[in-house]
Structures are given as C-alpha cells and as structure tokens.
C-alpha cells in the first residue's frame, strides 16, 4: 500500500472493518499529537534515550566499569566526550549503560503500578459503597506520606538495591492512579451510555473492564507520563541516598551521589548524570502535556 492510499484508508469517513476504525482513531490522535512541537520534542527525546540505552554496547567506546586511575577526573575531551569520574571511568559510557537501569526501573514501576491503580480505582468507583470506602481509605494512608519518605522506609525495611527500589516506588506510586481512575469512573458511571450497557444485560465485571476502563485509560496515560519524571527523580533520589542502585552501578542517581564531592573542582562529574535525569524528566513531562491535550475527553467532542 502506498503512503497516500494508507493515509486515505486511515482517514476514511466510512471505515469498512473494526480494524480500520480502530487504526483510524489512533492515526487521528497521532495527527493531533504531531501538531504539538513540544510534545514531539519530548517523544523524540524519549525514543533517542531508549535507543541509546538499548544500543549502549555499540555506542559506548569504553566499558562502564573500566577504571583508568591515571586519567581520573579528566575534563570532557576528544577521547572522553563527557570526561571521566574519580576512578577514571568514562562518563558517557556509564550514562549509556545507566540509562538501561534508570529507564528500566521506570518501565518496571509503570508496568506494575498502572494496571493495579486502574483496576482498583475503576472498581471502587463503579461498585461504590463499602468496597469503595475501604479502598479509598487505603489510598489515603499511602497518600498521607511523602513518596520518598515512604519509599525510603520500605527499602530500609528490605535490603537496599534496584529490585527493592522498584517495589518501594511501585508501592508508593499506585494510589494517585487509583484516585484518578476512580474520579473518571464516578464521572461516567451515571451516564446514559453506561445505563444503556446495563440494559444490554452486561455484567458488572464486563461494564468495568470493557466500558469504563478504556475511557479512564486516557487520563491515566497522561498522568503516568507526567509522573515518569517524578519516578525517575525518586529512583535517582533513592540511588543518591544509597538506598537504590548501589555504586559501582551506573544508575544516574547513584552516579550523582558518588560524585557530589567533586562539584566544585570537577563539576562535569556530577553534572552529566544530573543533566541526563533532567532531560529525561523534561521529555516525559512535555510528552505528558501533549498527550493531555490529545486524550483529555473533556476537550474532545
């Protein structure tokens, strides 16, 4: 199929199959998103970061752990584009490999958290009554603590490390998602189309899974992408506080932590991973903002 006929197929006003209708809807959303330059900048940055992290073995000229004590704290130069750290390790190589850990943690957290929050929130909102009250009080308990403090407490109770950091962040990240999903559900549970679905004979489970969750998904995706930066920062903060990834692991937060004493005489050592954290968070934020404009049902007819 040529480009133009594919486009015509996607934008057709009279799709002839379920598949065409579904792809057409996604393509229209994509067209909307494409008109937002900031969101596109965010998306491209995220893709570049992920590709760079995945291609770390090909892109990195050095091993992230190879020490060269004779060349430590070298300023950025032709051999070491971003300089070297206190043990003479190439910072660029460490950033590339560290991207795998940091971005991997974020993905792991989201995969764990988003479905839980979505199901809990939608079920609570639709069923209402006692189950709703219990679930919402539980989320209140989690929301009452600052995320980092709670995560710290969890990690301290288990053993510091990447896995426990992921679990700790996941445990602290789901309540806001449940809240959002519940709020969305409350707004649509009394609508006529849900009433019509009840009259169609659909069971409660079917209504929640098939009719309510897809509608709540939009605002959840937006919230998740806006939250990505905070997850990255929490992961980095845990690393920085020595509760997440442990040095010598090149996790970005841990890199900043172990290099913080060089901020004055070798600024690039803590600065490079800090910039990486900043860029990744900003990119996710920009994308989230753009997605909100596209997906927010309140702004679409």
């Amino acid at each position: 199929m040529s480009d133009t006929s594919l486009r015509a197929w996607l934008l057709s006003d009279t799709p002839t199959s379920r598949r065409q209708a579904g792809w057409g809807r996604l393509y229209r959303l994509w067209c909307d998103l494409r008109t937002n330059p900031l969101a596109m900048a965010g998306l491209i940055t995220i893709i570049l970061l992920i590709v760079a992290a995945l291609a770390a073995p090909l892109l990195a000229a050095y091993s992230p752990d190879a020490q060269d004590l004779s060349n430590h704290l070298a300023a950025p130069n032709a051999a070491h584009w971003l300089g070297t750290d206190e043990l003479g390790r190439d910072i660029l190589a460490r950033l590339l490999w560290g991207g795998r850990i940091t971005l991997g943690m974020v993905v792991a957290v989201v995969v764990l958290v988003a479905p839980v929050g979505l199901v809990v929130g939608c079920a609570a909102g639709y069923i209402g009554g006692l189950p709703d009250r219990i679930l919402m009080r539980v989320t209140d308990v989690f929301l009452a603590f600052p995320r980092l403090i709670l995560a710290l407490a969890f990690v301290a109770a288990i053993t510091p490390g990447i896995t426990s950091a992921i679990i700790a962040i996941a445990l602290t990240a789901w309540p806001p998602y449940a809240r959002i999903a519940r709020a969305e559900t409350l707004a649509i549970r009394n609508s006529d189309f849900i009433a019509a679905t009840r009259l169609a004979g659909a069971s409660r489970t079917r209504i929640i899974l098939v009719h309510i969750i897809p509608l709540s998904l939009g605002s959840l995706i937006v919230r998740v992408s806006l939250d990505m930066s905070s997850i990255i920062l929490t992961a980095a903060a845990l690393g920085f506080l020595g509760m997440g990834a442990q040095p010598p692991s090149p996790e970005w937060g841990a890199m900043v932590a172990s290099a913080r004493r060089f901020i004055v005489n070798a600024w690039w050592v803590p600065m490079m991973p800090a910039i990486a954290i900043f860029v990744a968070s900003l990119a996710f934020n920009l994308l989230g903002d753009g997605l909100r404009d596209v997906l927010d049902p309140k702004q679409r007819s």
Partner: peptide, 27 residues
C-alpha cells in the same frame, strides 16, 4: 430503553458496530 440525549447514550470510544454488538455479546 431509548434515552433522551443521543450524544450521551452512546459510548464515545466505541464504533456503532460495537454499540450494536454489545447486547448480543453481553447476553
């Protein structure tokens, strides 16, 4: 039942095909 507001009684993210199939599938 048929509702008053035709804008509110159809699921905004489902095709007409899905809306019409729902009673048949659910039952």
């Amino acid at each position: 039942m048929v509702f008053q507001d035709p804008y509110g009684s159809l699921h905004p993210r489902q095709t007409i095909d899905r809306a019409l199939a729902e009673p048949l599938v659910a039952q």
